[in-house]
Design a protein around this nucleic acid. Structure first.
Length: 275
DNA sequence: TGCCAGGCCCTCTTTAGGGCCTT
């Protein structure tokens, strides 16, 4: 006879016991099956965007930087004689600059050092087909599955990148997942907090402050895309073992990332998207 | 003219407010 394989709703027994960073996570039905099927990510692509403003300004990307690092280098960090963590093997690095059509907010221009005038003076093209092809080819060179990593990425970098891609009718390769180091690190600290409550006051989890706290040093080239990716890689590396565990349960499918805003469609420039 | 992010977290909380975090 026919055996009816009813899909069983997730029960508390299905919730991962390890790592504890997820003890307080609120599970959504949408996230659950994806988590169960998530294969081990091979490559971690750390990324950062500089853009014309914050989400309320409907920003456009002006600079993007990506460092591709294999999980092996994150699992086996190297230190120099003094014990200082060394930047892991960066397999490929891509930094692109583009002239946005949207005006920079004064604050965005101030902190990034980018401006519409300067990018136009340098005859820089916008976020176009050539950018998308470069991104795709860059990702194609990395062993999959790929996990994108960004700080506050769920609320900023990933939705904005999705918006810019959507504007040109493009998207990233299927199967890509993404991780946000901001909630991941907060979650990790929360788990251990009860034992060290009095030791630190309120901690800032901005990328710059994490870097200062972990390395007792000033981040270099802050608010350049490449400088911030460097800081992000080092911050990740400092807690790589824990964060790599979090990926299995905290990562989201790229397909589930909602665009930051609905873009006005733009004519594709910079050539066709066909490979 | 009037609009102007938003999800998460903490707390003097849950009938709420405010700060963080990203540019």
């Amino acid at each position: 006879g026919l055996i009816w394989m009813s899909p069983r709703p997730p029960s508390s027994e299905d919730w991962p016991k390890e790592p504890e960073c997820l003890a307080r996570r609120k599970w959504s039905l949408a996230a659950f099956p994806a988590m169960a099927e998530l294969p081990t990510c091979e490559t971690f692509v750390f990324l950062d965007l500089e853009a014309t403003g914050l989400p309320n300004a409907h920003p456009e990307i002006a600079e993007i930087s990506l460092f591709a690092i294999h999980r092996f280098s994150l699992e086996h960090p190297e230190r120099d004689e003094s014990g200082t963590l060394q930047l892991p093997r960066v397999l490929d690095k891509l930094t692109l600059c583009m002239c946005p059509e949207q005006n920079f907010t004064p604050k965005a221009s101030e902190i990034t050092g980018l401006s519409n005038q300067n990018l136009a003076d340098n005859h820089k093209a916008g976020f176009n087909g050539a950018v998308i092809r470069a991104l795709r080819e860059f990702l194609k060179r990395q062993k999959s599955p790929i996990c994108l990593v960004a700080h506050n990425g769920f609320d900023y970098d990933f939705p904005l990148l999705r918006t810019e891609l959507q504007r040109l009718g493009a998207d990233l390769p299927g199967g890509t997942v993404c991780l946000d180091t901001l909630p991941a690190l907060r979650g990790l600290d929360k788990v251990h907090h009860h034992s060290t409550r009095a030791s630190h006051g309120k901690k800032s989890y901005s990328l710059g402050n994490l870097y200062r706290r972990y390395f007792d040093d000033e981040p270099q080239a802050a608010h350049s895309a490449e400088g911030d990716v460097y800081a992000l890689v080092m911050v990740f590396l400092h807690r790589a073992q824990e964060l790599l565990q979090c990926v299995q349960t905290e990562a989201q499918n790229w397909d589930e990332i909602q665009p930051m805003y609905t873009p006005r469609k733009r004519r594709l420039s910079g050539g066709s998207l066909d490979a």
